[in-house]
Amino acid sequence: MRYSWSFVLKRFGLLLLIIWSGATLNFFIPKMTPRNPLREKLLQEASRSGYIPPGFEEMVQAYESKFGLDRPLWQQYMSYMGDMLRGDLGFSISNYPKTVWELILEGLPWTVGLLLTTTLLAFLIGSLLGALMAWPKASNLFRYILPSLLIFGAVPAYVIALTLIYFVAFRWKLLPIGGGYGIGMFPGMNMAFILDVLSHSILPALALVLAGTGGWAIGMRGMLVTIQGEDYMTFGEAKGLKDWRLFYRYGVRNALLPQVTGLALALSFIVSGSVLVELVMGYPGIGTLLARSISQLDYFMIYGIVFVIITGIAITMFIMDMIYPFLDPRISYEG
């Protein structure tokens, strides 16, 4: 056993605290603002008929008591917390018969699939490039030209995505412009559909990988520079080891550990990391769902998505913290 129960309990307490704060912020922030979604919705429906009917205020009040909004705040809060505990996020306003959960579950596989792949790819490519940048025997290409590519890491991924759309999809027509799959395709487990989905995923994936690689490369380069001064590297060189062996077995392997910690952290942002790229690309994941809900003033949807993402991040971080002592034998949470 690498960690004590008291640590697990403390960490679990933090997990609950985070989820509770997320839910509470979700409840109180909208309450503190002067906006009234119910009145806005009714007003929108009423103005469609051209005039505001007499008795509009009574109608608003009737709906408010129907939704329980005339009860004292703490009662509303308790019943809200009860709903959250049971995982009841309510109905979507703009896609009415569907619940918030159903819509989130539709988007989730897209987002997780895209981000899992790109996070891992960016990690692998970035670490390798970073290592080559710090390696004195690598060719000049790696040592001087590639570092300038790190600049991509400074620019938001969705800005890169916009640029890619224009050149790759619109100008050169190499890849589809947006969406998750082509118009006229039916989702199913056949070869044609899978290939279509893949070709639609290349551009968003490319943007995310380009934006993500730089950070990994900088971290890896820093680590490898430090490691090159270590005695075992000098010893290995004096023994006459082959360069590639020295590079992979002695250098990269030792430098990789802090990178893996970073990977664990990055993986916890797997649900929220691509909101804007999805929006730009029209990719049918959580991000697009969030953007659409914002423009349609679908409050339950917005708060539901935010709550699910916060919970997802908190749980992944908890799991990562629990796994980590098994990855790095030097870390233990005893005492």
Partner: peptide, 14 residues
């Protein structure tokens, strides 16, 4: 732990 963008979304949209 809470992604900043999402918190801002809640604040700004309300």
């Amino acid at each position: 732990t809470v992604p900043g963008l999402l918190l801002l979304v809640v604040i700004a949209s309300s």
